[in-house]
């Protein structure tokens, strides 16, 4: 049995939304992992009694002031937290659009039969 073109179009849209959601979830996971790493690095920097740390630039370790590196990491944490929030909002929106579309399709199916 072939589905009416209207339902087929809605199903295609549903599939696209699911793919978009999948992408957002993957991005969120990657940003959250980086955020975790940044926080852990900050935590470990606190343990170091030295005022200087080393930053890998290319293949070389460059001596840097601990405070400067801490500031950089804190800024990175802020940026990443903001990105996680943005991605969460996008995820919520997509979830609700998906739900709406699923309901719409379910309503269309009995009428098509």
């Amino acid at each position: 049995m072939e589905l009416p073109p209207q339902i087929q179009a809605q199903l295609m849209q549903l599939q696209q939304l699911q793919q978009q959601l999948q992408m957002i979830l993957m991005q969120k996971q990657s940003v959250e992992t980086e955020l975790k790493e940044c926080k852990k690095a900050l935590e470990e920097l606190e343990k170091s009694s030295s005022d200087e740390v080393y930053k890998l630039v290319g293949g070389l370790f460059v001596k840097r002031k601990k405070e400067d590196v801490k500031k950089e990491l804190e800024e990175k944490v802020e940026t990443l937290e903001l990105r996680v929030k943005t991605l969460e909002k996008q995820e919520e929106k997509l979830q609700s659009r998906l739900k709406e579309l699923q309901e719409k399709i379910q309503k269309m199916i009995p009428t098509a039969q």
């Binding site: 790493e37 940044c38 852990k40 690095a41 470990e44 920097l45 343990k47 170091s48 009694s49 030295s50 200087e52 740390v53 080393y54 930053k55 890998l56 630039v57 370790f61 601990k66 590196v69 990491l73 990175k76």
Partner: peptide
Amino acid sequence: DKVVVSVGQNISAELEYEEALKY
């Protein structure tokens, strides 16, 4: 007595020998 350990994000910090072992 000091060991430079990578703490992630391309940053390495100097830790006390015992701390580095624990890390």
